[in-house]
């Protein structure tokens, strides 16, 4: 469930003060000491002339850092002349955007109906017990995370899972084990 609705309201109040503070302090001078936000600014500015570029910018930032660093909201808001609440609202609306670093290896299991018809729920249960984490969670050491996806477009060859960004069809529990072992060993074979 997405939590944007109350988040937006809560932020709107705090946001105005934050914004005026950062204006007083001067955004750019703060960044001299913070290479991350300088980089976020560069990424945002590269696209700021495109129409409606916020999602594209967030994808670019996430591609570069693996997640959206804390400075994303204030810096991108400033570059695009949006309120922080608007930027935060977008980040929290879309399940792709993460404000915390991802696990080293992400396992995503498809829970769409077509994959369920060939055992996806059992595979998801297996993944939970093997990894010792719930869907949407990371292992404490950050080594592995488990996610659910609703359809990868591989619905004739399910169950479907992606491991470390690579898509796999007809995935059994044994195959999932092998794929995870392989990814954790840093391998790229399938």
């Amino acid at each position: 469930m997405r939590s944007w609705s109350f988040d937006v309201k809560r932020l709107t109040l705090g946001e105005m003060t934050e914004r005026s503070l950062s204006e007083i302090a001067g955004g750019a001078s703060l960044e001299a000491a913070d290479p991350t936000s300088a980089r976020v600014r560069a990424v945002a500015e590269a696209r700021s002339a495109e129409p409606g570029p916020l999602l594209e910018i967030l994808h670019d930032v996430q591609n570069e850092f693996g997640h959206l660093p804390e400075s994303t909201t204030p810096v991108v808001a400033e570059v695009l002349n949006l309120s922080r609440a608007e930027v935060h609202g977008v980040i929290s609306f879309y399940s792709d955007f993460h404000t915390a670093p991802p696990a080293e290896v992400t396992v995503a299991i498809c829970r769409g109906e077509a994959c369920q018809a060939v055992g996806a729920e059992a595979l998801a249960d297996y993944a939970k017990s093997r990894l010792g984490v719930d869907v949407g969670a990371h292992a404490k050491d950050g080594s592995v995370g488990l996610e659910q996806i609703f359809c990868f477009g591989n619905c004739a060859l399910g169950p479907t899972a992606s491991v470390a960004g690579r898509l796999h069809g007809r995935v059994t529990a044994e195959r999932l084990d092998a794929l995870i072992d392989d990814a954790q060993a840093g391998g790229s074979s399938s």
Binding site: G112, E113, C151, G153, N154, C155, A156
Partner: peptide, 8 residues
């Protein structure tokens, strides 16, 4: 966007 499960 092809979000429907079962479509590809």
């Amino acid at each position: 966007d092809e979000g429907d499960s079962g479509t590809y």
